[in-house]
Amino acid sequence: MTTFRYGFFPGCTLESAEKELKMSTLKVAEALEIELIELKGWTCCGASHIQDIDELVGTSINARNIALGEALHVDKIITVCNTCTLMLRQSKKKLDERKELRDKVNEGLSRANLKYKGTTEVTHLLWALIEDYGLENLKKKVVRPLTGLKVANFYGCHILMPPKIMGFENPANPQSMEMIVDVLGAENVPFSQRLACCGFHAVFPAEKEVNRLTQMNCLSPKEAGADCLVTPCPLCQMQLDAYQPGAQKGFDKDIQIPVLHLPQLIGLALGISPKELGIKRHIVDALPMLRARALV
């Protein structure tokens, strides 16, 4: 049997507010017999902010992160965060295409006894399940099909755009989430905000506008009849879930909808308990909905 082995880049939110994503990712990987080796000493990817202060630092810290993965002799580094994926891949693309930049960055890395070689790819769990693991294999592991569960897939921007860096699928009409949801036995619900931005990266300077986005992003799937939103990005999850009560305040329509991480949805279908998947760790409790659908 093929072994699936990745260098695991968790990203900062998995160590704090989104711990349940780390719990559920590790549980799902275990159930699927995917080996995840956490990169030792990884740092924040820059989260789409550090380049606004210093571009060379932004590229260098990710060259360092990727070099930590290269030292593990894995083919790919895997993430479960859209923005981490984009930041790592963006740095990788620059380093691979611009020798002068790579040499400059490597001079800095040499002071930390590291070297960026460009031998390891960067992927996201969503992509890896489709292109490495295979949907047929995933289907074989489903022990509790999510029959009757109506799922609204919220992709988030950074797993799709820009395609010259991400490139897994057409950002105008992606299908990867729908393909996974199909395999899990749940029902995909089309909704107008499916490809919208969650606004998380500007939640401080653009609080009012991002609040409005959260209202629209929660109302649209709810009106389309979805039981929950599911997202491959912890930042989208945090924006849609943790900021939802604030967005509800003063808004006349009921927007309440639970927001699950993609590995939590997969974990449920693999028969992993909600407790092990950290489903209780959300601001909008998903358990009543899952009980009503007889899925827990």
Partner: peptide, 13 residues
């Protein structure tokens, strides 16, 4: 409002 850009990448895309 320079800092209100959401960094969503839709313009670049």
């Amino acid at each position: 409002e320079l800092w209100k850009c959401l960094h969503c990448m839709a313009c670049v895309t």
